[in-house]
Simulated assay, not measured.
Amino acid sequence: MREIVFDTETTGFDPKTGDRMVEIGCVELVNRLPTGKTLQLYFNPERAMPPGAFAVHGLSDTFLAQKPLFRDQVEEILEFLEDSPLVAHNAGFDMGFLNAELALCERDAIDLGRMIDTVEMARKRHPGGQNSLDGLCKRYGIDRSHRVKHGALLDAELLAQVYIELTGGRQMGLSLAAEAARTAEAAPARIVRSTRPYRAPRPHAASAAELQRHEAFIKAMDNPIWSR
């Protein structure tokens, strides 16, 4: 099963008020494992970057002015996404911006039925817990020390690890067991030599005298159960 974990960076909170997407980062999963295939694209938003948004992701007007427009890269994005389920943290936000940009390109919106929201998953699994991306990384022991500022690809890579944990983890025990079996199969057989002294086997059959005593004992029994 192929899934795409993705994140976006934007100029603000609401595309309906003119905010635009400035970065998208995508990570491909197949059967809940990263394949190593990713996509990261920056866009010129055709508007100034508000100071509050710049403080979050650090993408400046100067940096973004040299980047292509979203419409110039839309085919590459759709080709990467294909028809796979789309996993995002607070997915309504990211899907809202993605569909707003597609609308500006006069392209069809992505069906929200493909959306998987890890915030909702985390709330169900950890009621009352810290379900931000940072909080979930801390809960699952995922290293986020390199996350100085938000970045779409970086956050998508962290979220992919969180999503794997939310859906049952990697089942590392199976992999370790398989590796152990391969190692054992490849290892040369060992010959174990005993250091204990040899002792001849003892006879276990009854002697003639013992058989005679047993027969006499049986005959002396008064009304045994097997003769009734």
Score class of each variant (00 low, 15 high):
residue 1 M to F: 10
residue 1 M to R: 10
residue 2 R to L: 06
residue 6 F to Q: 02
residue 7 D to Q: 02
residue 8 T to S: 08
residue 8 T to F: 01
residue 9 E to Q: 04
residue 9 E to I: 01
residue 17 T to A: 11
residue 20 R to G: 02
residue 21 M to L: 15
residue 22 V to S: 03
residue 24 I to Y: 01
residue 25 G to T: 04
residue 25 G to D: 06
residue 30 V to G: 04
residue 30 V to Q: 07
residue 32 R to F: 15
residue 34 P to F: 05
residue 35 T to F: 01
residue 37 K to Y: 08
residue 38 T to K: 11
residue 40 Q to K: 09
residue 41 L to T: 04
residue 43 F to T: 04
residue 45 P to T: 10
residue 46 E to L: 05
residue 48 A to I: 09
residue 53 A to I: 03
residue 53 A to D: 07
residue 57 H to G: 11
residue 59 L to D: 01
residue 62 T to N: 14
residue 65 A to G: 04
residue 66 Q to G: 10
residue 68 P to C: 13
residue 79 E to R: 13
residue 87 V to C: 06
residue 89 H to E: 03
residue 91 A to Y: 01
residue 91 A to M: 02
residue 95 M to F: 11
residue 96 G to E: 01
residue 100 A to T: 07
residue 101 E to N: 07
residue 102 L to R: 03
residue 105 C to T: 04
residue 109 A to P: 12
residue 109 A to C: 10
residue 109 A to E: 13
residue 110 I to E: 03
residue 115 M to I: 10
residue 116 I to C: 09
residue 118 T to E: 07
residue 120 E to Y: 02
residue 121 M to F: 01
residue 121 M to W: 00
residue 121 M to Q: 05
residue 122 A to E: 03
residue 123 R to A: 07
residue 124 K to V: 13
residue 125 R to P: 00
residue 125 R to G: 03
residue 126 H to N: 08
residue 132 S to M: 08
residue 133 L to T: 00
residue 135 G to Y: 00
residue 135 G to D: 03
residue 137 C to P: 02
residue 139 R to E: 05
residue 140 Y to K: 12
residue 142 I to K: 05
residue 146 H to G: 13
residue 146 H to W: 05
residue 150 H to D: 10
residue 152 A to Y: 02
residue 153 L to E: 15
residue 154 L to R: 15
residue 155 D to R: 03
residue 157 E to S: 12
residue 159 L to A: 00
residue 160 A to S: 03
residue 161 Q to H: 11
residue 162 V to L: 02
residue 163 Y to I: 00
residue 164 I to Y: 06
residue 164 I to R: 03
residue 167 T to C: 12
residue 171 Q to S: 14
residue 172 M to P: 00
residue 172 M to Y: 08
residue 174 L to I: 11
residue 175 S to V: 07
residue 176 L to Y: 12
residue 177 A to D: 10
residue 177 A to E: 15
residue 178 A to N: 10
residue 178 A to H: 12
residue 179 E to N: 14
residue 180 A to Q: 02
residue 180 A to M: 05
residue 182 R to E: 15
residue 183 T to I: 11
residue 184 A to F: 08
residue 185 E to P: 05
residue 186 A to T: 14
residue 189 A to V: 12
residue 189 A to L: 13
residue 190 R to M: 09
residue 190 R to C: 05
residue 192 V to W: 13
residue 194 S to C: 06
residue 195 T to A: 15
residue 197 P to K: 13
residue 198 Y to D: 12
residue 199 R to D: 08
residue 203 P to S: 04
residue 203 P to Q: 08
residue 204 H to Q: 14
residue 208 A to G: 07
residue 208 A to I: 09
residue 208 A to Y: 09
residue 209 A to Q: 14
residue 209 A to I: 10
residue 211 L to P: 05
residue 211 L to T: 07
residue 213 R to M: 09
residue 216 A to Q: 14
residue 216 A to S: 10
residue 217 F to R: 09
residue 219 K to Q: 08
residue 224 P to M: 10
residue 224 P to Y: 10
residue 227 S to R: 13
